[in-house]
Computed example of a mutant assay.
Amino acid sequence: MKDLYEIIYEFLDRKESFVLATILEKFGSAPREQGTKMIIEKDFSIIGTIGGGIFEAMAIKLASKVFQSGNSIVRDFSLTNEGASALGAACGGEVKLLLEYIDFNDNKMLEIYRKASEIKRKGINFTFVTKIPEEGKAIKGIDKWICTEIGFFGEENDTVQSIFGKIRENFKNTAFEKVNKDGEEYLIEPIFNHETVYILGAGHVAQKIVDITKMLDFKTVVLDDREEFSNRERFKNADEVKVIPCFDNLLNYIKVDCRSYIIIVTRGHAFDKDALAQMLKTDAKYIGMIGSKTKRDFVYECLMNEGYSVRDLEKVHCPIGLPISAQTPEEIAVSIAAELVKTRRALI
């Protein structure tokens, strides 16, 4: 699956304009996270998703106005409990959405996205900054900048240089946010090439895995449907700890791509099977499931009865971890972490 910035640059290089939708803010149980993006083409087909269902349909309808005017639109959407249920969320929430026209005729737009695509391919971390104009104005290529730890790309701008100076004070911990500077609003988007470990299940083994994956410089996210297990007190070293309604619709809560590592360590066969079924549909670099060969065979048989193939299941590391005769949670965590490193270094 191609990177978003590569896709955007390819559109512009082919002389195709489009609307780019970005979730600016999220409150409650809205379906996708801040920073999630979706491309809307002139025929209103889409690449990516900002949540599906009613919410996505409203965004596509608004995009027609953006195509007509060329101006950006910022809108608040409130999802009722009924609407949220249709999107797979437990209850209603609110999102603020930015829709901007990306014009292939804008040479500065082409240049900034060419540079973003190039930097991303090189694996360099950067922050993308966009000035959000007042209602009824267009976002142009001169309103976008790129900041790396040592470099700057875009039009010279004293205000933006001031923002970059602040970003570089704690570059690796830059957060997605909107800031107001000199009366103007700017969107700050960190684009980090983190390899992310998603641990599905928050038991004792998960606790030990987190301690090691953080030492190995993986971004580490823990998910569970039990708040008494999935909390910051138990997972002090995790980057994120999420409490989810259930193990259905996991992709509403996490972004899985070719730099993602999935560790399935839930509390039972049924949860493991449901989680695995969803992860098999992704581009995850690694999928591992804890359990014996007997458990594996049972889960695999269930999934094959649901239409998954042997080839699909060959992607899965189960029993999880390198074979070091691990028994304790600490030893199991070591074996799993070793398998992650082996995958990372492309030795499998």
Rank of each mutant, 00 (worst) to 15 (best):
E25N: 13
G268W: 06
G165S: 09
D217E: 13
G203A: 00
G70T: 01
L62R: 13
V310R: 15
V179K: 10
D272L: 01
G291T: 00
Y113H: 12
L62D: 14
E118L: 09
W145D: 04
F164W: 09
V256K: 14
A63F: 03
Y261E: 02
P329V: 10
E227C: 00
T213I: 04
S162F: 07
K37C: 12
E56W: 02
I132A: 08
I112M: 12
I60L: 02
T174R: 07
S335Y: 03
E240L: 13
V179A: 05
Q68A: 14
N125W: 08
S117I: 00
F11R: 15
I47T: 13
A275R: 10
E228T: 06
K120S: 14
G48C: 11
V241E: 00
T159G: 02
A346R: 15
E189P: 06
C147E: 01
G136K: 12
V241F: 08
E94G: 13
D257F: 06
I290H: 12
P323T: 07
K236D: 04
I163Y: 02
R234I: 06
V160M: 03
Q34P: 03
F44N: 12
I40M: 01
T343N: 12
A90S: 12
I199L: 04
M109Y: 08
E118W: 01
G53D: 05
Y253A: 10
D43Q: 03
F152T: 07
A84N: 11
R168V: 01
K178C: 08
L187T: 04
H204T: 04
I199Y: 01
D211A: 14
G83V: 11
D106M: 09
K37H: 13
F27H: 13
I262W: 11
I40Q: 04
I47Q: 14
I73C: 08
V265F: 08
R121P: 00
C258F: 15
D274T: 11
S17T: 05
Y261I: 02
F18V: 02
K61L: 10
K144H: 02
C258K: 15
I263L: 15
F55K: 12
A63E: 01
F126I: 05
I124A: 09
G51K: 04
T22G: 09
E169A: 06
G203S: 01
A275F: 03
E82V: 13
N252D: 05
A338R: 02
Y253D: 11
E228L: 09
R32F: 12
K2D: 13
Y300L: 10
I244P: 11
Q68M: 13
R267W: 00
Q327V: 15
R232V: 12
D13P: 00
M304C: 07
N81V: 01
G136R: 12
S117K: 04
L340T: 03
K208Q: 14
N237G: 00
M215Q: 15
P133H: 11
I112F: 10
L313M: 09
N71F: 08
K178L: 15
I132H: 07
G165A: 04
H194V: 06
K315Q: 11
G183H: 04
E10C: 03
I102G: 01
M215G: 02
V210T: 03
I262Q: 09
S45M: 09
V265I: 14
K178M: 15
G93L: 05
G165D: 07
I50P: 09
E189R: 07
T174K: 05
R14L: 10
D248G: 09
L347R: 13
G28W: 07
G35V: 02
Y113G: 06
